[in-house]
């Protein structure tokens, strides 16, 4: 935790500028409100989402080495806003950091672009916004910024697999509480944490094209469990989870054969609401599952 100015090399990922543009937009608003300076890596490329690694591991490693090298050019640590980017990039980074000869081999492919990924003395840091918020910005400092506490809002955390597993790769040795940060943030924003079965389970997105039934069953089950536990909404740091939990929610409802209809917020949206941003500017109207109930609950709380 520090009171200092935070400036990061910012990798927004693909989906936040594709199917969930409201995520990219709300992150910009929240960064501004928190005083986090984002230096966007607009030349960086897709993390591969684990799919490219499945095809050609070296290709995935090199693509991400390129992104890391672009970040290193700025002299800043890197921040992402997607659990899947976090997981896929951490996996590549683990291999790149493990062996200097392999790193040199991968860097060969980058040399023509004047780039090189270096492990460095203290290692290269790449954190999801959630991690940065808790570890670098600090929960107390966040709390102090809250102008519209989420009082009475019951929020179910939904992490996305890639940010909670595997623990060994994702720095849980050093930061063992990374799997309860969402709960901590919800609490810091004045909201109420809803405990339900699906918080750290899979949204099903990775198999949406391969096994639609299984995929939607997963999404539908988690949304249903959260509703049964009394949630007003879910919050997720992963736009891919958002796709399955929100965009596919009506389809998921058919598969699990029940009414759903639960708002699913991106993490920056939830933070933004508490910091006083309006639902519309946070892009909440772009969601499939209505966020109306969340807005109603907060209507009584002046911004």
């Amino acid at each position: 935790m520090s009171d200092g100015q935070i400036k990061v090399a910012y990798w927004p990922g693909c989906v936040s500028r594709g199917f969930t543009p409201e995520l990219h937009g709300s992150m910009a608003i929240v960064a501004d409100k928190l005083g986090i300076e984002l230096v966007t890596l607009d030349r960086a490329n897709c993390c591969g989402a684990g799919v490219i690694a499945e095809h050609n591991q070296e290709l995935a490693d090199t693509l991400n080495a390129r992104t890391f090298a672009l970040a290193q050019q700025t002299g800043l640590s890197m921040m992402n806003i997607c659990s899947t980017c976090q997981g896929a990039q951490s996996e590549c980074q683990q291999r790149l950091d493990a062996d200097s000869a392999y790193r040199a081999h991968v860097n060969e492919a980058l040399s023509g672009q004047g780039l090189s990924y270096e492990k460095g003395k203290d290692g290269f840091t790449n954190k999801n916004f959630l991690w940065l918020l808790v570890e670098d910005y600090g929960l107390d400092r966040l709390k102090a910024q809250v102008v519209r506490p989420l009082t009475g809002l019951k929020v179910g955390p939904f992490y996305g697999c890639y940010i909670v597993r595997p623990k060994e790769r994702l720095g849980y040795g050093e930061h063992p509480d990374r799997d309860i940060y969402l709960e901590q943030v919800i609490t810091a924003l004045g909201g109420e944490v809803v405990e339900y079965d699906g918080a750290r389970k899979c949204c099903g997105f990775p198999v949406i094209t391969m096994n639609r039934e299984t995929s939607l069953k997963q999404a539908g089950t988690h949304v249903g469990d959260a509703i049964d536990a009394g949630a007003d909404c879910l919050v997720t740091p992963c736009p891919l989870c958002h796709l399955n939990l929100d965009m596919q929610q009506p389809e998921a409802a058919k598969v699990v054969n029940r009414d759903l209809g639960l708002a699913v917020l991106h993490l920056p949206q939830l933070v933004g609401l508490a910091l006083g941003a309006e639902p519309k500017e946070l892009g909440m109207s772009k969601h499939i599952a209505s966020t109306g109930w969340v807005e109603e609950r907060l209507a009584g709380v002046p911004a």
Binding site: N56, Q57, E58, L59, D61, Y102, G112
Partner: peptide
């Protein structure tokens, strides 16, 4: 630049086994 990476990686296709 991305395409250049593809060329290099598809040529080697190394699997680094930790």
């Amino acid at each position: 630049d991305v395409k250049a990476i593809y060329k290099h990686a598809e040529e080697h296709n190394e699997e680094f086994n930790l």
